[in-house]
């Protein structure tokens, strides 16, 4: 898989993450919702960075889907936090897979995205009461 294809995969994951935050944000209480808003803004910034990069590579940028199938219903805050952890783990996995395929600024983009996903997943696990809140190799499937 080429670097552009890996970046396109990452873009699809960022689109899906932004959609998921739109759903789960509605189920969070006032204290938690600000963390989710910060996370969503970070995913939007990463999405924009990937789109700029793909344009520079003259590679196709997959658009966002109108809707995404969620792994489970999101009726309450506990489910919303589970979805948040899952979204961050999935994005971490996609970015980790990109790392061997990209170099230079793209490697930096990918590793920073992986780091940010791991930190957000840990924060979400902490709020959800998941112990331990960390995993040894973020992004490794």
């Amino acid at each position: 898989m080429t670097a552009a294809e890996r970046l396109a995969d990452a873009l699809r994951a960022e689109h899906a993450a932004i959609y998921a935050y739109g759903v789960l944000g509605a189920r969070l209480d006032g204290q938690t919702v600000s963390a989710a808003q910060t996370a969503e803004a970070a995913h939007r910034a990463r999405r924009d960075a990937v789109m700029v990069r793909l344009a520079a590579l003259r590679a196709p940028a997959p658009p966002a889907e109108p809707a995404y199938a969620l792994p489970a219903p999101v009726p309450d805050q506990a489910a919303a936090l589970r979805l948040m952890v899952g979204v961050e783990e999935r994005c971490a996995g996609i970015w980790r897979q990109a790392l061997p395929e990209v170099t230079g600024d793209d490697r930096q983009l990918a590793v920073d995205a992986l780091i940010d996903c791991a930190v957000r997943a840990t924060k979400a696990r902490t709020v959800a009461g998941v112990r331990p809140p960390t995993v040894p190799f973020p992004g490794r499937q």
Partner: peptide
Amino acid sequence: ALLGSIAAARASHVAA
């Protein structure tokens, strides 16, 4: 990938 995951794990330790 190995080093990226280690960087991410350590950053998550800061959060924890």
